[in-house]
Design a protein around this nucleic acid. Sequence first.
DNA 1: ACAGGTACCTTGTTTCGCATGGTAGCTGAG
DNA 2: CTCAGCTACCATGCGAAACAAGGTACCTGT
Lengths: 116, 116
Amino acid sequence: MVAEKVFTQLRRGTLEYCVLALLQGEERYGFDLVKELGEIDGMVTTEGTIYPLLARLRREGMVETSWRESESGPPRRYYRSTAEGGQALADFTADWERFRTSVDGILRRGNEGRRK
Amino acid sequence: MVAEKVFTQLRRGTLEYCVLALLQGEERYGFDLVKELGEIDGMVTTEGTIYPLLARLRREGMVETSWRESESGPPRRYYRSTAEGGQALADFTADWERFRTSVDGILRRGNEGRRK
DNA sequence: ACAGGTACCTTGTTTCGCATGGTAGCTGAG
DNA sequence: CTCAGCTACCATGCGAAACAAGGTACCTGT
């Protein structure tokens, strides 16, 4: 589909915080996150995206991890958000709302508008 | 400001269509677009961003251009949206709304939610 | 014993915004 | 009249993020 390319660009910068949001008050592992995001419109992604992203979040102290055995299959690395991660998410949410409002405003002007 | 880095990422993919939106039913020149965008929250940008972007839109047939003299200062290259540009904008607007809805949903879950 | 699913990760490529810097015309102050 | 500063255009090279592709290894069922 053509629209996929658009979403690839839109995800930039937001995907990171969407993952952080999914890790609030809930532990998850990478492979699980890929499947979870795959069910959300416009958020389809792959392991090649998620693992580097999680590594970055870990480096920055946004998430903590712990290995745990699976009942069926290889062991999993579980991620959970730190307090710092929760704060970063809250900050981003405020920025996102400002940005979203701006974009909505400009698009409205362009699509219906056509003034003067 | 720290938040600026966030906006840089968020602009990816959307800036192009915001410009296209500003060019609907209205001719503008590059330098003017920079100033116009600079007044919109989260859209502050520079000539180094706008000119390559406009060149790309022109290459793809989204905009047409014409040189015109200025009463004061160097001549200006005016840009206006083609029909193709208008269609691309409409398509993007639909995609943007889907994406925005998804992000809002995920962020809500992460910030207030904290279920189970 | 081996095919297929689960789960982790790395490497190289692409894309886009931006920093930087360069050209040139017009205007106004000294 | 000259030159500083604004307007206006553009090109080049970099960095960050997402992704494609590929690799390893474990477990289960046939």
